[in-house]
Design a protein around this nucleic acid. Structure first.
Lengths: 189, 189
DNA sequence: AACTCCATGTAACGTGTTACATGATTGC
DNA sequence: GCAATCATGTAACACGTTACATGGAGTT
């Protein structure tokens, strides 16, 4: 039930409508933490309101409903954050590709690794200036919401880019030595 | 449909039964790439066999069925690996916690960040010797299946541990300056 | 004989995605 | 008036988890 806690966390930061929340998932939150569309968010908010975790604060134009966290909701969020389970849910398609890169032919693996490195570089080029702007505006003593998460993204992409380049070198070395411990997946037909 | 490609990738490496495959998901694959239980794997293998992506190689004792990838399956795996989508599926409970750490009171956030750093240290202590063993056995020119993925894990945990310590420092600095840009989630009742 | 591990499966439920549907408001 | 955006929802489907069920083979 992570969606519910994601919503609680966002609402703990500031009251928002289902529409607002669904757009937050389109940003960095959805990019590397958790994805959810409005079709899932709306019913979940209704359910959470029924359970007393959130409440409708205002009803505005176009049927807009603004939700706020209740004390019960805050307690639930804190309890969830403070007790991480041993086996957290992880489902990452990109990491899966990294696992399976060795089932490709070396030539294909090289192309894939290069494209991963480039993709990470592009994300870094987007994120780094953003973080610098935040620090410039708030100073290194300020800590706007999202700054820690953004930094996580930077370090994450940096690590993956470095990994991809390391992996390519290992692959090259293995191929030069004539022993790529893999059963290649060649194109057929 | 990532499960299907995960299965294809594992079977491309070596033929296996549904039981074998389900146990592979219990290791590092499930720990940081993709999770799946046997109850999902068995029906998926049946479906993939119907579609000609895999085939039953042998039927052994206790009804054991060993699957192999077909040429069609290999082509499908290659095609999937070589065309990564713009918005890959990402669902990571731990990263979500990192996003929401700023909705905790500084004292709680500090405890959480410390526990994240410790958890990463523990994983590193487990993985690093494993990778060293592999390199010792295969040499730096050898590349056993899983070596690249294992290295990804090492770099990943290292990055998160460093991030957690950095985040703690930023949090300390912000609190010292008396401005933690967060609405704290305190315990109630 | 009892226990554990191997090995496969079904059914119910929870969660997430895609497609469909509706209507208000704002900017041009 | 038209298009874009805001704003909410439902229904069907896909995917994943938990609980339940069964039985063979090896070990003590």
């Amino acid at each position: 039930m992570s969606l519910r806690h994601a919503l609680l966390g966002l609402l703990a930061q500031e009251p928002a409508s289902g529409y607002d929340l669904s757009r937050k998932f389109e940003g960095d939150l959805g990019r590397y933490a958790w994805q959810a569309g409005h079709t899932r968010i709306y019913p979940e908010l209704v359910k959470m309101a029924e359970e007393g975790l959130v409440a409708v604060e205002t009803t505005g134009a176009r049927g807009r409903k603004t939700y706020v966290v209740t004390d019960v909701g805050r307690a639930e969020l804190r309890s969830w954050l403070m007790s991480p389970p041993d086996n957290a849910t992880v489902r990452n398609e990109t990491v899966l590709r990294m696992f399976l890169v060795q089932s490709l032919e070396p030539a294909d693996a090289r192309i894939l690794l290069d494209s991963i490195a480039e993709h990470c570089d592009a994300e870094l080029a987007r994120l780094r200036p953003l973080m610098a702007d935040i620090d410039r505006a708030a100073g290194t003593d300020g800590l706007p919401f999202g700054r820690l998460a953004g930094e996580y993204g930077v370090r994450q992409y940096d690590a993956v880019a470095t990994w991809a380049r390391w992996a390519r070198e290992r692959l090259d070395a293995a191929e030069a030595a004539g022993r790529v411990g893999t059963r290649a997946v060649a194109e057929t037909g």
